[in-house]
Design a protein around this nucleic acid. Structure first.
Lengths: 339, 339
DNA sequence: TTGAAAGCGATACCAG
DNA sequence: CTGGTATCGCTTTCAA
């Protein structure tokens, strides 16, 4: 069942069939009707690869995320997918699983598929990969972190600034012993930037940085709860905890509840991502709002523009907002000065 | 940059280049070295479409899910993706967004891409779609619900049985006023089956079915919390709530906490999906464990087998398990008889 | 408005 | 072991 077969049956040329399918207005109404009737009668679905192959357009965009089981990436992915779908493009999705090797393989495969654009998560990766994409003239955009290199366009928020705001808020509430739970900085540049921001903020305020108050963990709520438990049950526990991720913040919140450590009276919590659930838990969780959906849409739009109209992708910074909720309060012990 | 170009530069034929890339052992070591050096020097990545086109294999599998922002689908998707990736196949993912129309368009597009298999969510859809897939000899499998038609292979658990177990548990704990929060049954056959199970269980135990105790809602935690609030603040509130989804159960739990309705003393809760978070909240949430990962892997494996070895997809039922945790207790008022 | 024919880039069969 | 070549299914000039 091919265009050629249909052409024979309809008594026209393959060119006419192709036109009837793609540019119906360029075919005589009568001819068109006849063809379309055949098409639906035989449930003909043209081979997209062949089409793609002659027209040089695959209609495919690749997305590389470390995982989608983290809600925030799921939301991000979904936003991208919806946008592309609306533009008639398809999403080829791949999990890099926080592994540089897997990622490299994935990117190669995307190039093999001749995707018309690639959305990357995080900027830190072998330069060879960026070069490969450029070499194949495949527009790409980095999300979730901004690359220091201007040649690598990123549509993202500023992890460092956002984390700084959160930590400074805790400091301004009088907290001096502030713990951190974040992702594994070796494999996650977002986590690394947030860690940096935390550390710098402390130093800037002359607060000693204590490595024992920092816990790097994978994003699993049970693991995070355990990490928080360890932090909170120290002899000299922190009075505030910055969790560079809501999953971890939730783990911490539930761990505290279980330990009868009152939030925010005994310990203040701030998360990161602003998942919908933060507004529903008790107390509601303060969190840094990350415009995941917006960021995804902007990235998709940029790539759609690049693919359709050859417009080069330009970087863009989207804003975050610290959402203060019930999980954060002035330090009880300290001389509480809110500025 | 094509195979032909490389052939000229290497002074060999295109056939040899192709072989050097796909079957290195069928090429003289010397020739091979020379070719591979060129390939890496020019960062040549063969065009997968062309390959696909001559070899009749696209290496693509399509997945149609209603959404991925629900964690449980994200986990499912991820399992499939990992499995396919390991088998050298790529996942083309599409959100149907609980819309039959969008889904139909998506399936058409998957056929256009000549995917080698399709994983569907839920069985209820226009028969024409199934026929189209069959017509194109594309193996498919239904997940998340079992089709009553044997011609539609499903790899799934039994929604009805699983929900029945949960509701009967509540009944056996002495509950007689049991509420239900579930998905929108019009567009979600899983929700519909769970609703049916709930209703039948009540009737079977001579408990009056009260429509006012049922709330159909989209899977958003805030919406679910409101729905639960309405149910719990009735003049004559239920003593137990079956939530056909953990998102909704969590919404209910947090709503109860906020209203000072004690769980499980005042109201028992059972969710569905057994998300990791259920083990961490307070009290831990009873839930029906759904083997999302296993189901995804099995579906992926079935399709891999179908694509690779022409083995027809056969249905399979995977088990669920009711995980009883702290959110459920015997009815306080009633004459508590645990059988 | 319609048709003929030249690709698009790799694969694989068949010779040599 | 290597080369020539038909082929996959459709799009797209270019003519008619």
């Amino acid at each position: 069942m091919t265009i050629r077969w249909l052409a024979r049956h309809a008594g026209v040329s393959v060119a006419t069939i192709s036109r009837a399918l793609r540019h119906p207005d360029r075919v005589a109404p009568e001819t068109r009707e006849r063809i379309l009737k055949l098409v639906s009668r035989y449930q003909f679905v043209p081979d997209g690869r062949a089409a793609t192959f002659s027209s040089r357009r695959t209609g495919l965009v690749g997305l590389v995320v470390p995982t989608i089981s983290n809600s925030i990436y799921a939301e991000f992915t979904e936003a991208i997918q919806n946008r592309l779908q609306a533009a008639g493009l398809s999403l080829l999705i791949a999990n890099a699983n926080y592994s540089a090797e897997i990622e490299a393989g994935i990117i190669r495969k995307l190039i093999e598929s001749r995707v018309e654009g690639v959305i990357l998560t995080g900027y830190k990766r072998d330069a060879a990969l960026y070069n490969l994409l450029r070499h194949y003239r495949i527009p790409f955009v980095v999300t979730w972190s901004t690359s220091p290199e201007p040649a690598i366009p990123s549509i993202s928020f500023d992890n460092y600034a956002a984390a700084t705001e959160a930590v400074e808020m805790l400091i301004s509430l009088g907290h001096r012993r502030i713990g951190l739970i974040c992702g594994v900085t070796d494999i996650n540049d977002r986590a690394a930037q947030r860690f940096d921001a935390y550390r710098s903020a402390l130093l800037r305020h002359k607060i000693r940085f204590e490595p024992e108050l920092v816990s790097e963990q994978p994003f699993e709520i049970e693991v995070s709860a355990e990490a928080a438990t360890r932090l909170v049950t120290r002899k000299n526990p922190p009075t505030a905890l910055f969790c560079a991720n809501d999953i971890q913040a939730l783990g911490a919140l539930f761990a505290c509840q279980r330990l009868n450590v009152r939030v925010p009276e005994d310990i203040s919590l701030i998360g990161f991502d602003d998942l919908p659930i933060t507004r529903v838990v008790n107390p509601p969780l303060s969190s840094v709002h990350v415009p995941a959906k917006l960021m995804g849409q902007a990235a998709a739009d940029a790539l759609i523009d690049a693919a359709r109209n050859g417009i080069p992708v330009t970087g863009q910074t989207v804003g975050t907002e610290l959402m203060m909720r019930g999980s954060t309060a002035p330090a009880a012990s300290a001389n509480t000065k809110i500025r």
